Amino acid sequence: MVGFFIIAPAALVLKLALLPFEKPVERSPQEVATYLRDFLEGKGGYGDWDYFTSTEIADPRLNDIRERAANLNLPFGEEEEALLEELITEVMEIVAEEAAF
């Protein structure tokens, strides 16, 4: 148990130090929509939400949506659910734009 209190802070410091050097992840609009729908339906947990909101996305449009989603806190109330639905709508507009090309 003592090891946890030594290793966990060290791992956190290392993660924060390496954060600026991490490359943004390639994620499709469909993947982003799936992540957001899962959280809206209560399928994702705190760790999943943290991973989604803290991992930069290469597509600036999707990354903007991720950043706005990061402002929402779990568990979602009615207001957060409405905002999440708006973000899903934005992602689906991107999907439609890409399908038109």
Rank of each mutant, 00 (worst) to 15 (best):
residue 1 M to T: 09
residue 1 M to G: 14
residue 3 G to M: 08
residue 4 F to C: 03
residue 4 F to Q: 08
residue 4 F to D: 10
residue 5 F to W: 15
residue 6 I to Q: 15
residue 6 I to W: 15
residue 7 I to L: 15
residue 7 I to F: 15
residue 7 I to D: 11
residue 8 A to G: 08
residue 10 A to H: 04
residue 13 V to A: 15
residue 14 L to C: 06
residue 14 L to H: 09
residue 14 L to E: 10
residue 17 A to T: 14
residue 18 L to R: 11
residue 18 L to C: 04
residue 19 L to T: 08
residue 21 F to K: 02
residue 21 F to R: 05
residue 22 E to F: 12
residue 23 K to Q: 05
residue 23 K to A: 07
residue 24 P to Q: 02
residue 24 P to R: 08
residue 24 P to S: 07
residue 24 P to I: 04
residue 25 V to G: 00
residue 25 V to M: 06
residue 25 V to P: 00
residue 26 E to V: 13
residue 26 E to N: 11
residue 28 S to G: 07
residue 28 S to P: 09
residue 28 S to L: 08
residue 30 Q to I: 02
residue 32 V to Q: 09
residue 32 V to T: 15
residue 32 V to A: 10
residue 33 A to Y: 04
residue 34 T to R: 10
residue 34 T to K: 08
residue 34 T to L: 13
residue 35 Y to L: 09
residue 36 L to E: 01
residue 37 R to D: 15
residue 38 D to N: 15
residue 38 D to V: 03
residue 38 D to P: 03
residue 38 D to S: 12
residue 39 F to W: 09
residue 39 F to M: 13
residue 40 L to F: 12
residue 40 L to V: 02
residue 40 L to N: 13
residue 41 E to L: 13
residue 42 G to M: 10
residue 42 G to H: 09
residue 43 K to Y: 10
residue 46 Y to V: 06
residue 46 Y to M: 07
residue 47 G to I: 05
residue 47 G to E: 12
residue 47 G to S: 06
residue 48 D to A: 14
residue 48 D to L: 06
residue 49 W to M: 07
residue 50 D to S: 02
residue 50 D to R: 00
residue 51 Y to W: 11
residue 51 Y to I: 08
residue 52 F to D: 01
residue 54 S to F: 01
residue 55 T to Y: 05
residue 56 E to T: 15
residue 57 I to P: 06
residue 58 A to C: 00
residue 58 A to N: 00
residue 58 A to D: 01
residue 58 A to M: 00
residue 59 D to K: 03
residue 60 P to D: 13
residue 60 P to E: 14
residue 60 P to H: 02
residue 61 R to N: 03
residue 61 R to D: 03
residue 62 L to H: 02
residue 62 L to N: 07
residue 63 N to K: 02
residue 63 N to S: 03
residue 64 D to E: 12
residue 64 D to W: 00
residue 66 R to N: 03
residue 66 R to L: 06
residue 68 R to F: 10
residue 69 A to K: 04
residue 69 A to S: 12
residue 70 A to N: 02
residue 71 N to H: 10
residue 71 N to K: 12
residue 71 N to V: 08
residue 72 L to H: 03
residue 72 L to M: 13
residue 73 N to H: 11
residue 73 N to F: 11
residue 73 N to S: 13
residue 73 N to I: 03
residue 74 L to I: 07
residue 74 L to Y: 07
residue 74 L to V: 05
residue 74 L to H: 08
residue 74 L to S: 05
residue 75 P to T: 08
residue 76 F to G: 05
residue 76 F to K: 09
residue 78 E to F: 00
residue 78 E to L: 01
residue 79 E to K: 11
residue 80 E to T: 07
residue 81 E to G: 04
residue 81 E to F: 01
residue 82 A to Q: 10
residue 84 L to K: 05
residue 84 L to H: 01
residue 85 E to L: 10
residue 85 E to Y: 04
residue 87 L to W: 05
residue 88 I to Q: 06
residue 88 I to R: 07
residue 91 V to H: 09
residue 91 V to W: 08
residue 92 M to E: 15
residue 92 M to V: 13
residue 93 E to D: 14
residue 94 I to C: 08
residue 94 I to K: 04
residue 94 I to D: 06
residue 95 V to D: 05
residue 95 V to H: 02
residue 95 V to A: 02
residue 96 A to V: 01
residue 98 E to N: 05
residue 98 E to F: 00
residue 98 E to A: 03
residue 98 E to D: 05
residue 98 E to M: 04
residue 98 E to P: 01
residue 100 A to P: 01
residue 101 F to R: 14
